[in-house]
């Protein structure tokens, strides 16, 4: 059984296969029966150790639209709050015969560890500050829908790169698909190893903005910050926030993306967030199609069409 642990595990062909499959599956929301029988009799467990509305409901609905049985398992109100370890929880799920496990965890590498313990497919729905591959897939899907191509696309990812799993997954996937990524952040919010990533780095948003086809704004993840990374929120917003004036300097057909949740007035102004060139709500819709595609490709056949082989017994 194969897993989806990192956006970097996907080859170009596999990524395109996910995007094409998602495009076909997007039609389901316009039909009289919004369901496919494809995963009938398969069980998908949503294992969420971190709070999440968007991703969990999106995975849940995606699995249900494919007729899979879904079990939601959140850290609160389960044995986890009684002190059960991830491994013991995994073995419990294994004993129940889960075909797929969607995991979100605050520790980087949790999905990777889980893949070694269970027979089912593991889908990484965000592990610490490491990766969030389905978010990258839905972002790329949205770019392709809006702008028609990915090859040579200039993408700026702006904000808290250090704590962002979205940024890492996007950099890896966009690189695979031939887009050029520039990370924009204050030096304190960039990871030490950023020079090994396949992308450019800048500290000046105003230099990068006019040369970008896509501007992806990231939330400052205050809950992960134990130190002071910038003097004040106001100063951060002045230098790295996307407000009306900066928005006006962008290319006329460039789009603004945000993985949510947004903090209006901090990294993005309300006016920009609600503009027709902002894709925030589309990203949510597309997330459903992309997750259906990933679930189908991982669980629909005798062996999965995408992902890596790690953790194979």
């Amino acid at each position: 059984m194969r897993h989806l642990l990192s956006a970097g595990d996907l080859s170009r062909d596999e990524a395109i296969l996910v995007l094409d499959t998602a495009k076909e599956l997007a039609q389901v929301s316009g039909r009289s029966v919004k369901k496919y029988p494809t995963l009938r009799g398969r069980t998908v467990v949503n294992l969420f150790y971190e709070d999440s509305t968007r991703t969990r409901t999106s995975f849940e609905l995606a699995a249900k639209r494919l007729s899979a049985d879904v079990i939601n398992f959140s850290a609160k109100g389960s044995s986890v709050s009684k002190g059960e370890s991830l491994k013991d929880t995994a073995l419990t799920l294994q004993a129940m015969g889960a075909d797929g496990v969607v995991i979100r965890h605050s520790a980087s590498g949790a999905a990777h560890r889980l893949a070694g313990w269970v027979d089912g497919a593991v889908l990484n729905a965000g592990d610490g500050t490491h990766e969030h591959p389905t978010q990258a897939l839905l972002d790329v899907f949205t770019m392709r829908e809006r702008l028609g191509h990915l090859e040579g696309l200039r993408v700026a990812i702006v904000g808290d790169i250090l704590h962002s799993r979205v940024a890492r997954s996007n950099v890896l996937l966009l690189h695979t698909l031939g887009a050029e990524v520039t990370l924009v952040a204050p030096p304190t919010l960039l990871p030490v190893s950023v020079h090994t990533w396949p992308c450019a780095v800048s500290y000046e948003l105003d230099e990068v903005l006019p040369k970008s086809d896509v501007v992806m704004m990231l939330r400052v993840q205050a809950e992960r910050m134990k130190d002071a990374f910038f003097p004040t929120a106001r100063e951060y917003s002045r230098r790295y926030g996307l407000d009306r004036e900066r928005f006006a300097r962008m290319q006329r057909d460039a789009i603004v993306m945000h993985p949510g949740p947004m903090v209006r007035g901090m990294e993005i102004s309300a006016e920009v967030a609600d503009s027709p060139r902002s894709t925030v709500t589309e990203q949510v819709t597309n997330g459903l199609s992309v997750r259906m595609a990933v679930l189908y490709l991982l669980l629909g056949g005798s062996e999965s069409g995408i992902g890596n082989q790690e953790g194979q017994a």
Binding site: L17, D20, T21, E24, L25, Y36, P37, T38, Y296, L297, L298, L299, G300, G301, S302, E303, S304, G305, I306
Partner: peptide, 14 residues
């Protein structure tokens, strides 16, 4: 998505 032999082969492209 409606085939009865999906599990006999790797996931197919649509």
């Amino acid at each position: 998505m409606y085939r009865d032999d999906l599990r006999l082969a790797p996931a197919r492209a649509l």
